[in-house]
Computed example of a mutant assay.
Amino acid sequence: MLTIDVSSVSSEDELHALLKREFDFPYFYGRNWNAFWIAVTGLVRIPDQVRFVGWASLLDRVPAGGRMLRLQLDRYRDEYRSDLLIEYG
């Protein structure tokens, strides 16, 4: 299981930097939601279990980014990885 602490993220750019590091996206990752989709669907393999810690804090500080991340990961699970377990805590 990969645990990602998003509790201190205060901007969408910080969120993308954290996702890049934790999911081991390539150096050329564009730090936007289109680039995120491309990365998770073709450039890296997301672990079978991902747990986000500090989710409520992320939604307070970066609500649009938090919603978009969840939307993207839910879509990824629905279209590519029905076995993917994601926890938002």
Rank of each mutant, 00 (worst) to 15 (best):
M1H: 07
L2R: 15
T3L: 14
I4P: 01
D5S: 10
D5Y: 02
D5A: 15
D5C: 11
V6N: 06
S7A: 14
S7H: 06
S7R: 14
S7G: 07
S7N: 11
S7Q: 11
V9S: 12
V9I: 15
V9P: 12
V9A: 15
S10T: 11
S11E: 13
E12A: 14
D13G: 11
D13H: 11
D13F: 11
D13I: 08
E14K: 15
E14M: 15
L15Q: 15
H16T: 01
A17P: 15
L19H: 05
K20Q: 06
K20F: 04
K20R: 06
R21Y: 06
R21F: 08
E22D: 01
E22Q: 02
E22T: 00
E22P: 03
D24A: 06
D24F: 01
F25G: 01
Y27G: 09
Y27E: 07
Y27A: 14
F28T: 10
F28Y: 11
F28R: 13
Y29K: 05
G30D: 06
G30W: 07
R31F: 12
N32E: 14
W33A: 13
W33I: 09
W33K: 14
N34D: 12
N34L: 15
N34F: 13
A35D: 13
W37H: 03
A39G: 00
A39W: 00
V40H: 08
V40N: 04
V40Q: 08
V40W: 02
T41W: 02
G42Q: 04
L43T: 06
R45L: 03
P47E: 07
P47N: 15
V50H: 10
V50W: 04
V50G: 08
V50T: 00
F52H: 01
F52C: 07
V53L: 12
G54N: 10
G54H: 05
G54R: 14
A56I: 00
S57G: 06
L58Y: 04
L59C: 08
L59I: 00
L59G: 07
D60M: 07
D60A: 13
R61N: 14
R61Y: 09
R61V: 05
R61G: 10
V62Q: 10
V62F: 03
P63S: 08
P63Q: 09
A64W: 07
G65L: 09
G65D: 01
G65Y: 04
G66C: 05
G66I: 01
R67L: 11
M68I: 04
M68V: 02
M68P: 05
L69I: 01
L69V: 04
R70T: 00
Q72F: 00
Q72H: 12
Q72V: 13
L73G: 03
L73E: 05
L73M: 09
D74C: 08
D74G: 10
Y76M: 10
R77L: 06
D78S: 13
E79C: 14
E79Q: 07
Y80N: 04
R81G: 05
S82C: 06
S82Q: 14
D83E: 11
L84W: 03
L85W: 01
L85M: 05
L85I: 05
L85Q: 10
I86P: 11
I86T: 02
E87T: 02
E87I: 01
E87G: 03
Y88D: 02
Y88A: 08
Y88L: 01
G89L: 09
G89V: 08
